[in-house]
Write a protein that binds this DNA or RNA. Sequence first.
DNA 1: CGGGATCCTCGGGGATACTG
DNA 2: CAGTATCCCCGAGGATCCCG
Lengths: 123, 123
Amino acid sequence: MKQLNQEYQCAINMVIEIIGGKWKVLILWNLNEGTKRFNELKRAMPGITQKMLTQQLRELEEHGLVMRTVYEEVPPRVEYTTTDLGKKIQPTLFEMCKWGDLYAEEKGIQMNRCWSSYDFMEE
Amino acid sequence: MKQLNQEYQCAINMVIEIIGGKWKVLILWNLNEGTKRFNELKRAMPGITQKMLTQQLRELEEHGLVMRTVYEEVPPRVEYTTTDLGKKIQPTLFEMCKWGDLYAEEKGIQMNRCWSSYDFMEE
DNA sequence: CGGGATCCTCGGGGATACTG
DNA sequence: CAGTATCCCCGAGGATCCCG
């Protein structure tokens, strides 16, 4: 499927390829709360299509940020959770979010703040 | 030209739109060293086309991360420098870079490390 | 020197229908 | 429930040529 380039002028370009998808950071954020099922994620992200959710999850899995667990039941149950590598990027995402909030404030941009509370990072 | 959406589910998505362009972080990095001329930037980024450099610089300018100064001379001289807002995102970019290096190490990915030395951030 | 104007390609991403 | 499988569109980004 989607492969990373071998040549990067800087690690950041790789990072952007890894988390730059339209929904990736949102997925990571939702999984940060804990393990979730497919439809649970879908409901948490209004506007995302099944195809996109599946695809973005697969790429996150291939890149080792998310783990997928299939339970052999009927009806099927599939759970997603972040790996250690995935958890380690969370502080970075918070940094991005904080700068975004600063930016929005200076530019007078209104937005939903899904990460409005950074409380559990403060400790 | 390129406008930001009004609706974001999270500030991070806005941030990714702002710096997610293929060359944006590279440009910001180069400008982090100080003011540079157009061709100076171009030479510093092998592979970038004139059109892309111009376009990405314009967008960074519109978003208030970069300032463009035109000197009315012959031949023309145009200089680019980061704004306060642009400088404030640098620590965040470093965080991304560090995670990228960690990721590359775990995955055994080789890459040029344009930010291999974080020395001046350590102080 | 520092662009602008055009044309074109390719793949990200949406809509819809089907399935174990 | 958690996906495939198709079809299709649009826009990011490259190549090329022209300009004050």
